[in-house]
Design a binder for these strands. Structure first.
Length: 315
DNA sequence: ATGGTTTTTACTGCGTC
DNA sequence: GACGCGGTAAAAACCAT
């Protein structure tokens, strides 16, 4: 980052952005080469008009749409280019094979540079977002939503100098909630390899800055369906759990309680009533809560409602 | 930061197979 | 004995203030 944002004056004593080693080379020509990885940079001060003009032409041919060329070209006054001199860092001419290689590199370099750094960063994050969505087996619409959220937060500068990992996890989690897909913060955190707490922090940030109003977590019903799916439970159990949940939707029971725990309780109760009788242990495990929580929710449901036979018949 | 609420951890006792 | 279940106290996590 510092490499890209330093001013022209001090930009020449920098470390290689690829491997971190100190760059060496001809500052008069404006070229600097990394002795280790071969990274070459050309200072904007030395970017002569001839190749600049060529680049503009090339750009106009290749790029159909995008930011104004001046903006895209100049990278805020800092640009990276592989020189055309075909000499190595000691001024010696390169052999033909090396010339070809460098020529190829230069071509790619110039192509990739036609996209400005902001867009490059954006596409990087967007691909990370879709990776995370893949890992979580999320449907396309969630990935789309996540991408949209990130675009907005990038535009609003919320993502500025924030961890890419944190932002991707937060946007994906928010997208899940917006789409009503039941993925817990825990699951998203696990898939992204982050601490739950830090994902939560980023999530709150994105929620506050990008999504003006509060997005409620998925309903208990959603959790029930998910739980039944992942645990491959009889659909009769699901049906009963859902009716049970609807008939007893009550602030006394649900307010302030983790939906996953409630869902587990409904599924457990239903499994007993239907005769499948899953162990609490299993239901709790699939719902990612503890047995204690399942018991507590069960007790509260049974304390507040008399569950009559009708529920079982009305399947 | 704090206090209230919820969840988890860890442990115990009970009945049944 | 092992297993499933119910309960409890205390720690930890969470959330609004």
């Amino acid at each position: 980052m510092s490499v890209w944002s330093t001013s022209r004056d001090e930009g020449f004593t920098n470390a290689c952005p690829v491997c971190g080693n100190r760059l060496i080379g001809d500052s008069e020509k404006g070229e600097q080469v990394c002795p280790t990885c071969g990274y070459v940079t050309l200072a904007p001060a030395d970017s002569g008009p001839e190749w600049k003009a060529m680049d503009l032409e090339e750009k106009n041919k290749r790029v159909r749409v995008g930011a104004p060329t001046t903006l895209a070209l100049h990278d805020y006054g800092l640009t990276t280019e592989i020189g055309r001199t075909m000499r190595d860092s000691h001024g010696k001419y390169l052999d033909p094979a090396m010339r070809a290689t460098v020529e190829k590199m230069r071509k790619w370099q110039s192509r990739s540079r036609t996209i400005n750094s902001e867009e490059r960063g954006l596409s990087n994050v967007l691909s990370r977002i879709s990776e995370l969505c893949d890992a979580l087996n999320l449907p396309d619409n969630v990935a789309e939503t996540a991408a949209q959220i990130y675009r907005v937060s990038a535009k609003k500068k919320v993502a500025k100098s924030k961890s890419i990992l944190g932002m991707t996890a937060a946007t994906v989690y928010l997208a899940c909630r917006k789409c009503g897909v039941s993925r817990t913060l825990k699951e998203v955190a696990r898939a992204s390899g982050m601490e739950k707490g830090s994902v939560a922090r980023y999530f709150r940030l994105v929620l506050k800055e990008v999504e003006k109003e509060y997005v409620p977590p998925p309903s208990v019903e959603k959790y029930i369906s998910k739980l039944v799916n992942v645990a491959k439970i009889d659909s009769r159990v699901e049906h009963l759990a859902l009716t049970l949940s609807r008939k007893t939707s009550d602030s006394r029971i649900s307010s302030g309680k983790a939906p996953a725990g409630l869902a587990a309780a409904y599924v457990y109760l239903s499994s007993v009533m239907v005769g499948a009788h899953l162990p609490q242990r299993e239901v709790a495990e699939f719902a990612e809560v503890t047995e204690v929580t399942v018991r507590n929710r069960c007790r509260e449901i049974l304390d507040n409602y008399v569950i009559r036979q009708e529920f079982m018949q009305s399947k």
